[in-house]
Design a protein around this nucleic acid. Structure first.
Lengths: 193, 193
DNA sequence: TGTGAAACTGAGTGCATACTCAGTTTTCCC
DNA sequence: GGGAAAACTGAGTATGCACTCAGTTTCACA
């Protein structure tokens, strides 16, 4: 069981950083310290390996957000929205390779022909956007968020904002940490009643 | 001269949609209707071909935004900001393949080792973010945008919002057109004095 | 029309790749 | 300890790839 997990871990890193096509079984085996055959013993194909990683990623993200909701009292919907964004950014740091992987185009190419990929990606995006939406709805109910706000659409916009920051960080385009405060202020101005 | 342009056009489409590694010289030659050798006659390597595409893309984007600024009177900085976002989204539709290409990770991998890639990408991002910033500064000067707004950082945030919408469209994750109005309202609420 | 240069061709080359398989080692339960 | 199943191995195979090159066609201009 140990080798299978090592392969998953190293492959996640390699797929995220080098891409799918540029990750070879040979190199993956060398870096993991197993024989190349072992990879194909556990995961029938390279695509199967990628799918296993995606499934694990979905489980982890869904699990993390479930735990985020337990044991946490929110003062207001607006504040909850801000904390959701914070948590999203925190998670993107914690699961850096996996979030980088989720930004890789090849996942979306596979999802066009393989419904298992599609399903996992949908689960992840629905989980993320639902949480933003829940927070906004809470804010609409307690009056901390303006009645003009449409929950689902605004949830998607917030999501793109948070995700854009993650992308800046991952691509080294800009010092993302320096943007954090301004992002939070922008959200507040955008939503506030 | 005709074949060289055809290769650039087809290669842009293929790199954007299939990725760099999954685009083979053989297939590219077949789809373009030239011999494989012709590709390597005009562009010494596959990487050289990609660089030529990136250079063309940069020229086109910079040119488009220069023309956007000519012959256009803006009522206020806030309105100009909104028009910049609109124009960005319009351009992403007009140059769909090229914007898709700019979202591909392999460009950023090459830019780590090849300064020519890096330079072109920087030119593009600077051009885009500068325009958002200029519009915000104009709004700060004429009082249509709140004095609390920091121009550079807010420009980056606006950029990620607009770019997020483009990504939704390109990845078919959500009907991006349906988000347009909400995005514009979100920007106004965020910036307004 | 002749000529040199530029554009173009496609079979050929060597190398990297995903995946297989026959055999070996480890694990685990009686 | 025995024996069966599961885990693991790595040399081997067929395929596809980027790129080359010696030769042919097209072009521009005298």
């Amino acid at each position: 069981m140990k080798k299978k997990e090592s392969i998953l871990k190293v492959a996640t890193f390699m797929f995220a950083h080098k891409g799918f096509a540029d990750t070879s079984g040979q190199e993956l085996a060398r870096l993991t310290g197993v024989a190349e055959g072992t990879i194909f013993y556990h995961f029938k194909t390279k695509e199967g390996l990628l799918l296993a990683i995606l499934e694990k990623t979905r489980d982890e993200i869904v699990d993390q957000f479930e735990r985020f909701f337990e044991n946490r009292p929110f003062k207001s919907g607006l504040e909850m929205t801000e904390e959701v964004i914070s948590f999203y950014l925190y998670l993107a740091g914690l699961m850096e390779d996996k979030f980088l992987l989720l930004h890789r185009h090849f996942l979306y190419q596979f999802s066009e022909s393989n419904p298992e990929f599609r399903g996992n990606l949908e689960d992840i995006y629905n989980c993320l956007v639902d949480i933003f939406e829940k927070a906004i709805v809470a804010g609409l109910e307690d009056g901390s968020i303006s009645k003009e706000i449409l929950p689902r659409k605004s949830a998607l916009i917030l999501f793109t904002m948070a995700d854009g920051l993650v992308r800046f960080k991952n691509y080294n385009l800009y010092d993302a940490g320096a943007l954090f405060n301004e992002l939070m202020r922008a959200c507040r101005r955008m939503l506030q009643a």
